[in-house]
Design a protein around this nucleic acid. Structure first.
Length: 689
DNA sequence: GTAGGGTTAG
């Protein structure tokens, strides 16, 4: 007869409870099992069961229960138990606790082993505490685990997480026998630090060593490709993922969707999204982002309606994307809807979401709500970024004095302005024509030790340009210590347009065409300047130049908000019955305005055609159609809100001013640069935009 | 009887 030893019996009991533990799907059943094991005393005696319960509690995020079991265990010197507890902390993101626990382990004289370090290093990486990571690295070397592949991969990740990519690379280069996980760690390190190109070079090196990408590598590679906007490589990664069956892994789909979004390939993203059955929150977010990034904010909002019908819960990133979509659309009604949704669904509003909501209201021309939300920020959470958002909000509406007041208040309350604060303040001064104040702010950059950026100069050039001080603006550019970028020259070009300075415009344009040869807007602006001076020959040359480069002027599109919906109008004749009435109204409006003294500004039509035809082309501008629609349908007590994807033309601008006086209507127009508030015959931009 | 690389937003 076989005699059973006590070891056999214990292992029988352990496997018995193992089975029960596996079926503990709820916290309640786990607590029940815990109490049984406690009364029998088993939990304190068995390292195996103790560890299992610690991990189970950790997965239910009840880390203090886990710690209690650890603290009361008989085998407190078991490094396996220490490692298990450490794992609990790390997997729940309690990195500071993890590091404290690791130090405690030292205090108790427990030796770390090859299983301990990967956990500790992960905590060092997540908290970005490189100094402590280096201490751990020394300990790794001293304890002789410096050549363990898992530990080395952890070191690579730790240095990458702390942003010290060179040190990550040193560890990586010193490794023997690198597998695909190690390579991916290093590739990801480059990708995360914004060096997508280097990441892809490393992929090639890996493949040269006959290692194949697995699905995690694919996720990283798709991100790197997205950074570079390299559609061709993007499609090849997609193909690779398909051939290897990696699309079953949701993160691969998410990453490829995001990549297509960044490459501007909306249709590919849509196809992939449609073919994906297993959609997680991030999958929806990636598709929403793809739409928003590509200027398809309405599509994003309709997709969100679909998402609400699915069984996936939106998170704070979903909220952020939708808020930016609403900001893009400038639709206040949508803004309120999304804001309500966030509140009703208890979506956590972190600082960046809060700022985004303030920015959204500002872009929907509801500055009262924006200000109220700013004032609602708890004092201990108030951050320079929120001040910046508010200042920018006032600035884009031409409320320069208000922006300056906020700026002063911010300084009085002891907040340190940063480079973004100055961009916002300077831009506010520029939009409001506050030149002396703007110059004073510019000099304050030094006072606050903020490094000058081209953007700051662009604001100054815009400010001087608005005042007609073109030579001073040009001198400022010539004396810049930095290399002027396209924004700086662009501001000068705009000023040249307003003041009809073709010679200086040519200088600005030459620089712009060198810096941004693919930017359609600058060609259009220069061509308009030539058209203003009736230099049709140069207009023709520029047009041909654009054609040769395959550049096309983007179609003008205007939206007007009515009854919770946005109605879009493009320039030109539209023949459906819906717009026929609008046409009648435009014609009537234009006639009435002519009687009120409006003279059409034909310089807005940049074609070399007969004057009579020009008149006809002008009245069909999308924003005029939108305005007519608004006059017909919107309650006269409410402002008419119009958004437009390009700049407003001079004739529309003067028409809008007159409409605000003749019909006594408030009109708020958001163009690509700023807001125009039309009231009583005047515009908040003071006729410079 | 434990461990390493990963996706959206900013």
């Amino acid at each position: 007869m076989l005699r059973r030893t006590s070891t056999n019996i214990i292992s029988d009991i352990e496997s018995h409870y193992d089975k029960i533990l596996k079926n503990c799907n709820t916290l309640r059943s786990l607590i029940q099992l815990h109490s049984v094991l406690t009364t029998t005393g088993l939990i304190k005696q068995s390292v195996h069961l103790g560890a299992k319960i610690i991990i189970s509690y950790s997965t239910f995020k009840h880390i203090e229960h886990a710690r209690f079991i650890f603290n009361t265990h008989d085998h407190i010197s078991s490094s396996f138990l220490w490692n298990t507890m450490l794992r609990g902390y790390v997997n729940n993101g309690f990195h500071a606790h993890a590091l404290g626990f690791y130090k405690l382990m030292h205090g108790y004289g427990i030796k770390s082993n090859n299983f301990t370090y990967p956990f500790v290093l992960k905590s060092c990486a997540s908290d970005g505490i490189c100094s402590y990571g280096k201490v751990v690295h020394c300990e790794v070397v001293k304890s002789g685990f410096g050549t363990d592949g898992y530990v080395e991969a952890g070191l690579v990740d730790m240095y990458a997480g702390c942003g010290v990519i060179e040190d990550a690379r040193k560890v990586f280069d010193g490794m023997g026998g690198r597998d695909v996980v190690c390579w991916t760690a290093m590739i990801s390190a480059y990708e995360q630090s914004g060096r997508g190109g280097t990441a892809l070079e490393l992929v090639k090196e890996m493949q040269d060593e006959s290692l194949r990408m697995d699905w995690v590598t694919c996720v990283t590679v798709a991100s790197a490709v997205g950074q570079l906007g390299d559609v061709k490589r993007g499609k090849s990664v997609h193909g690779y993922a398909v051939r290897n069956g990696f699309l079953d892994e949701v993160p691969v789909v998410n990453s490829i969707l995001a990549m297509y979004g960044k490459c501007g390939e909306v249709e590919y993203a849509e196809m992939l999204f449609e073919h994906t059955k297993k959609r997680e929150c991030i999958t929806w977010n990636s598709m929403l982002t793809c739409y928003t990034q590509n200027g398809l904010a309405s599509e994003a909002l309709s997709l969100f309606e679909q998402m609400k019908l699915s069984d996936v819960n939106p998170n704070e990133v979903t909220a952020l994307v939708l808020v930016s979509a609403c900001a893009y659309l400038g639709s206040r009604q949508h803004a309120i809807k999304i804001h309500d949704f966030i509140t009703v669904n208890n979506i956590e509003i972190n600082l960046s979401l809060w700022n985004a909501i303030i920015d959204m209201y500002a872009k929907c021309a509801d500055l009262d709500t924006a200000l109220k939300l700013f004032q609602d920020i708890p004092l201990d959470q108030l951050h320079v970024s929120s001040w910046n958002t508010l200042i920018a909000g006032y600035g884009m509406h031409g409320y320069g004095k208000e922006a300056l007041n906020v700026f002063n208040q911010m300084k009085e309350e002891g907040f340190q302005p940063n480079h973004i604060t100055f961009t916002s303040v300077l831009s506010a001064c520029s939009h409001a024509g506050l030149i002396d104040e703007g110059k004073k702010c510019f000099s304050e950059l030094e006072t606050f030790a903020v490094v000058q950026e081209p953007k700051h100069y662009a604001c100054m050039v815009d400010m001087l340009g608005r005042a007609g001080q073109l030579n001073e603006a040009y001198e400022l550019i010539k004396n810049m210590k930095l290399q002027p970028n396209d924004e700086v020259w662009g501001a000068l070009l705009l000023a040249c347009k307003s003041y009809g300075n073709t010679n200086l415009a040519r200088v600005a344009a030459d620089n712009l065409f060198n810096l941004e040869p693919e930017h359609t807007g600058y060609y259009v602006l220069m061509s308009n300047i030539y058209a203003d001076s009736k230099n049709w020959e140069q207009v023709g040359i520029l047009r041909q130049d654009m054609k040769n480069k395959g550049l096309r002027k983007p179609a003008a599109l205007s939206f007007v908000e009515f009854n919770n919906e946005l109605h879009g109008f493009h320039t030109g004749e539209q023949l459906d019955s819906f717009t026929r009435d609008v046409y009648q109204k435009v014609k009537q409006m234009v006639t009435e305005l002519k009687m009120a003294g409006h003279v059409p500004d034909l310089s807005c039509v940049f074609h070399d055609v007969e004057e009579e035809d020009k008149d006809g082309m002008l009245i069909y501008h999308g924003e005029k159609l939108a305005l007519a629609f608004g006059l017909m349908n919107i309650d006269p007590k409410l402002p008419i809100r119009i958004t437009k994807n390009l700049r407003v033309c001079t004739d529309c601008h003067s028409t809008f001013k007159l409409v605000s006086r003749v019909y006594g209507r408030k009109v708020i127009v958001r163009d690509v640069n700023r807001f125009h508030h039309f009231e009583d015959g005047l515009c908040s931009c003071n006729d410079y935009w």
